[in-house]
Amino acid sequence: MMVNGARLVPDPSGALWWPGEKTLVVADLHFEKGSSFATRGRNFLPPYDTRATVEALARLVRHYTPKRLIALGDSFHDDGAAGRLHIDDVARLKRVAEQTELVWIAGNHDPVPPDGLGGRVEEEVVIGPLRFRHIPEGREAGEVAGHLHPKATVVVRGHGLTRRCFVTDGVKLVLPAFGAYAGGLDVRDPAFLPLFRRRFTAWMLGDARVFPVPAARLGAAESEATA
């Protein structure tokens, strides 16, 4: 995958690997999304989403040994999320922060990411041709963002398959949400329209590979969220 001249590797987990800069990027971790349901409506979702997300993150760090790990915002689902973290998960996160330079980009869910977990907080980060921020604005070339949780549906032989996906037009890129419970927004939603002037490609996450599918090939939007 080429974005504004940078060669990038989309990982089937939803993370982005930039070999040239030894940089790993993940978007929308939404730590403690599960427990946020308990605080508001007393819905008891399995409280293992943070664990699943942190473990996946730790696996990626072991695999790629990145120099730098960028979390593209909305890493924490709400203000109280950091306070609800299980101590084991805190310890796991700190271990990750010891192994790599960890950058928390601020998001709309976590305008002030908590400290004490390692890493540093930034509004946005520019590295070479790429600019990393939470909410995509679609103005500058090289913008890499999250926020939208893109997913796409493709119809093959009469069957619709829906997967999370990367979306890029070769100039800008939106990452899929990495968090275990994060929902998705179909790439044909109007929210994506202003971001990509040229026809875009959805890089859909398979089990072992990521599959590029052109916008023209994508099927009907799935309605938001199956609760």
């Binding site: 599960g34 508001r40 819905n43 979702l45 419970y181 969220a225 199956t226």
Partner: peptide, 13 residues
């Protein structure tokens, strides 16, 4: 009504 996918919570549990 808040949104999440029950496929995901099944996998995680």
């Amino acid at each position: 009504q808040v949104t999440f996918s029950s496929d995901l919570i099944y996998d995680v549990l």
